[in-house]
Design a binder for these strands. Structure first.
Lengths: 296, 296
DNA sequence: CGTCATTCATGCGTTTTTCGCATGGTGCGG
DNA sequence: CCGCACCATGCGAAAAACGCATGAATGACG
């Protein structure tokens, strides 16, 4: 059964004549007539009483007309939803990123996003594991390494710089390291544990100025970057911290400033199939804007 | 927007691949692929994620899929109703006929019809006026004269014979009329009044054996045939009555048997546009059957 | 980890359908 | 009583759709 004939039938029923319906549909009267005839053959029932002054629905026509009306309404509603989905961001958005970036960088900015897009509900999944976007564990991610899968759209956001930090109390007690080799005489704190290896660049203190095959063993390993920062802040030792963890006016002191530090690029990542979803586009544009205006 | 593409889309969504959908629809895979592509262009949104092992609905596809599902259900329901209407009589049926035929012939038979078709509700409109079937004052009529409009389907049912009746008490008192001319010496009762002229054939007593330009004046005119019959029965005079008014074993006496009496053919009449309605067909067949088995 | 099978996209020639025009017929209104 | 507005239909043209074949991609399986 050709559904398009039902659409034509509905227009005819509404306009009350083949001629008017033809004008509405951009068809000739004969074409409309034939479509209706074909439909009547399909349902094996006359749908209109042909009068000289137009058409009157038969009993069966009335039945089909109600159906066509309901179908039209249902479709119109959906078409509106489709453009809504395309033009007005709404729905749930699962965002994943690292614990550090999420809590220190993303979370403070999310309020503004929610203000701009009140129909979007955001779920933050902060974990240092990389969730599988292809499996829809999350819709969009901020990653600290470039993704490899080709079906993932990636967009660089900003570069995270790292520096060695210490607390004034620590320096007062142990002094600043004078060189990379001098690190052997200091208490080294490090991010680590079960976290993924790509974050090991913050293990720089373990190998800097030393044979990489024989790295220093940190005096403290912790798998939470905020905890690491707090340990440094209270004078537990030296640690490589990302700059976003150190707010303006912090008491933390950068040391070994002359050394070249590792850095990581952050990427906004989402599956190619999400690129048409308005809330994803809005979130992407929002983050890009925030990343541009934000400098370390 | 081509609705038929939605039908195809729904089949694809259900089967999960263009190939399977093509088999289901009797189309090639390429044809299905192009239909979906065209639909995606129409809604300006991708509807499926193409995977090697099949298809997955996008967010927009999900929206459209729900609409297509609802539309399919709605249409299926209506198609069922259409065949129901075609094959199973139901709904309201407005029947009109004369007061006499309706009360004496039709009414006693309607119970059986209602038993056979419990979903049909019958409304009897008994009037000696001819209701306009084209204006839908009634769906179907039993008429005592052949209709003229060509858009009315007519089917002859039976012939109504008329005879002159009198009560035994009347004959005892006044004797039987010996000839048509002898009618001048009798009390003549007649159907009449505002009723339509075609029933004036029962005015036969007024002109029989006499110059038609100078008819006898009846001693009683009544516009209700049952009342006329009752008047005859109680000896008020002679009257032409249709045979269906005189049951077996009645005390009424036929007189002037040798004279040629007028008769009327009864017709079942309904608009051409009702011929496909199952309850009309059922009613028609029922009445034809009853008319055949019923002989005067 | 390589091979294989399955699936989708697309170009091309053909077939099928559909369309518009013109004509004829019909019924209601002025 | 005429005329207008409407619908049905034949016919040729146009357009859309179709099927086939091919190519590319990707997940499954040994």
């Amino acid at each position: 059964m050709d559904w398009d004939r039902i659409r034509i039938f509905y227009t005819v029923a509404e306009s009350g004549s083949f001629t008017k319906a033809g004008d509405t549909l951009g068809l000739s009267q004969s074409a409309v007539s034939r479509q209706i005839s074909a439909l009547e053959r399909e349902v094996r029932a006359p749908l209109f009483h042909r009068h000289t002054r137009g058409l009157i629905l038969t009993e069966q026509g009335e039945l089909l007309w109600r159906a066509a009306r309901d179908m039209t309404q249902r479709l119109e509603k959906t078409k509106a939803q489709l453009t809504e989905t395309r033009e007005h961001p709404s729905g749930e958005l699962k965002v994943t990123t690292t614990v550090g970036l999420g809590s220190r960088w993303l979370a403070p900015r999310l309020g503004e996003f929610l203000d701009s897009y009140p129909d979007v509900r955001v779920e933050m999944l902060l974990t240092d594991e990389e969730l599988d976007l292809s499996m829809r564990q999350a819709d969009i991610a901020i990653r600290l390494r470039q993704p490899q899968q080709p079906d993932l759209i990636q967009r660089k956001l900003f570069t995270v710089h790292f520096h060695v930090y210490a607390a004034p109390s620590y320096i007062k007690r142990y002094g600043e390291p004078k060189s990379l080799e001098d690190l052997d005489n200091h208490r080294i704190l490090s991010f680590g544990g079960t976290s993924p290896s790509y974050l090991l660049s913050v293990h720089w203190l373990g190998t800097a100025g030393r044979d990489p095959r024989n790295p220093r063993t940190p005096h403290l390993l912790v798998n939470n970057i905020a905890a690491l920062r707090n340990a440094v802040e209270h004078g537990a030792g030296l640690a490589v911290l990302p700059d976003y963890l150190v707010e303006q006016g912090s008491t933390l002191v950068q040391t070994l400033r002359e050394s070249e530090m590792p850095s990581l690029d952050s990427y906004l990542v989402y599956p190619e199939e999400m690129k048409t979803v308005a809330r994803v586009q809005a979130f992407r544009d929002f983050l890009i804007q925030k990343a541009q205006r934000w400098t370390f």
